[in-house]
């Protein structure tokens, strides 16, 4: 399976896991992001994800390379789904295998944080009382134009 993938199909967790199994891996940390119904008082009906697909796959691959620099024995695979997702559907599955467990946990956590920073994917929440693109509108994330060093090589 392609290790870094943006897909419109449902994600098969085991496929993602299988692509990081290795005879010298003792630990695999898997992170699965699923569609949650309630966020505070807001009820989600469904979500829509869109991506800048070719660039998003490159950025996923870049995250894998960053992980390999930090944890040289790590093997990483990431699949992110786009399109319309229902409650409990899998949006993202990340698997990282390493010889020892501490590295696996740290690397898989690193991967999800980096996805939320640099991978061009956007989520539109369809609530029972309206819809909104998550990101700008919340004001929780801004990238002042003078401060993009985290993403510029």
């Amino acid at each position: 399976m392609k290790k870094y993938k943006i897909t419109t199909e449902p994600i098969n967790n085991q496929d993602v896991i299988d692509s990081v199994v290795h005879q010298n891996a003792g630990a695999i940390s898997v992170f699965i992001g699923t569609v949650r119904e309630m966020t505070g008082q807001k009820q989600t009906k469904f979500l829509h994800y869109e991506a800048y697909v070719p660039m998003a796959e490159k950025q996923l691959e870049r995250i894998g390379m960053e992980i390999q620099e930090k944890w040289p024995s790590a093997i990483t695979a990431i699949s992110h789904r786009i399109g319309t997702l229902q409650i409990s559907d899998i949006a993202v599955a990340i698997a990282v295998s390493t010889p020892h467990r501490q590295d696996a946990f740290e690397a898989s956590r690193y991967a999800i944080e980096r996805i939320k920073e640099i991978v061009p994917i956007w989520k539109k929440e369809h609530y029972t009382d309206g819809e909104e693109w998550i990101g700008n509108q919340q004001g929780t994330k801004t990238y002042p134009a003078g401060h993009p060093e985290e993403v510029v090589k």
Binding site: E117, I134, K141
Partner: peptide, 8 residues
């Protein structure tokens, strides 16, 4: 032009 991302 890539608005603040919200994948994951």
């Amino acid at each position: 032009f890539i608005p603040p991302v919200s994948g994951g």
